[in-house]
Design a protein around this nucleic acid. Structure first.
Lengths: 210, 210
DNA sequence: TATAAAATTAATCATTTGATTAAAAAAATT
DNA sequence: AATTTTTTTAATCAAATGATTAATTTTATA
């Protein structure tokens, strides 16, 4: 890779502009539907530059994918590993911050889930996912509350699934949900705002029930 | 389109075999990542035959997509429009049958949600989605229970979202969930079986709570 | 059985697409 | 200012891919 130029006028490197465009296009369309020309056009550069900086579409994608996953994982880790906050508080944090995050970058969840599905092993093994999640304060707090009889369902995976399901799925299914209910963008956003408060309440009720 | 041949030896038409292969490949890889050659190979035919019967990849995809969506919608309709069963019973039906369905065809949810996202208007407007869902017994029963004070959250869309989220999302996130929790295929299936019983219990608890 | 129609294939085309090359422009170094 | 290095582009390549054509085989019909 060539030495970085100083960038006095422009506040971004060409390399970074290509990455930003690649991120946007890959997130929106996925790997298979993305053309390197789309990225080049978005970044306002010649296609050759893309390969000059990143060697190949494949390679550029790997970089973007890894960064996106890391970002997601770091966020998860921050919420799930805070020793100070209670489990209830963690649910509130995840619901609120996660919904905010997805509203800003609505393409990320389905992008990640899609590409993980196509990729499986290779990618997930590059990241310390298991350590971060399985050994989190979230899981140990769950175990304690199960022992105390405060939570009926002992499997923490159900708990994690439920939380992520209630938060993430509505965004993934957004076009379908909007269509079947004649909800416009504004109304949908309001629904998601409501869910920030509702999901923690629902989760609490579920824990006691099943 | 040419006249159908009689098919005494084979129990399927060539046309149907192509469709079956197209369905399988499109469902697994999505439109963009699918090559017509993949379909042809899977069906054991020459690529030209695909175009002979279906004119284009685009056209073949539309047919598959519409059939898949219709099938999904018909299933939804069956569950949501049964006047005889209570709302609780409907939740049980959806959870149980839906989980069974996705276990047999695990590619369908993410396929549908992906392609709807790329397609938006054009496809959803070809199907009577709104009529089937919005005017369903499911929704009117929900309204009644809200009026009686049995359900706190008045918006039926939250109810529908929650139900679909809890049922569908774990399958979409399956590779991620397996990775973070070191769950193998057998254990994952058992988890999903458990959810058939748990989800209705959870939903009941949620209704009373928020 | 001869003939027409339908189904199927091999070969090929035209575009798209990821990537490279050689030259030009810009920036850094001497 | 001259020279070297880095960045950028236009032109082009080779492979992949959706589609077509012309011929062949199979099936149906007269």
């Amino acid at each position: 890779m060539a030495k970085k130029k100083l960038n006095i006028e422009k506040d971004t490197t060409t390399e970074d502009r290509i990455k930003a465009s690649a991120r946007a296009v890959f997130h929106r369309k996925g790997f298979a539907a993305t053309r390197t020309r789309d990225i080049a056009e978005d970044a306002g550069i010649n296609i050759a530059l893309l390969n000059y900086y990143f060697r190949s579409k494949e390679n550029l994608f790997q970089i973007i994918m890894l960064e996106t996953m890391s970002r997601f994982l770091l966020m998860m880790s921050d919420f799930l590993n805070d020793e100070k906050s209670s489990l209830d508080k963690k649910v509130e944090l995840v619901a609120s911050n996660y919904i905010d995050f997805i509203m800003i970058e609505p393409d990320i969840p389905i992008f990640m889930l899609n590409e993980i599905r196509n990729n499986t092993e290779s990618l997930l093994n590059k990241l310390p996912i298991k350590d971060i999640i399985l050994n989190s304060a979230f899981f140990s707090q769950h175990r304690e509350l199960v022992a105390k009889g405060k939570i009926k369902e002992p499997n923490p995976l159900h708990f994690l699934m439920n939380m992520l399901s209630l938060v993430v799925f509505p965004f993934i299914a957004q076009p379908l949900l909007k269509a079947i209910s004649e909800t416009d963008d504004k109304a949908f956003k309001e629904l998601m705002q409501e869910r920030k408060k509702l999901i923690p309440i629902w989760i609490k009720a579920m824990m006691k029930a099943g």
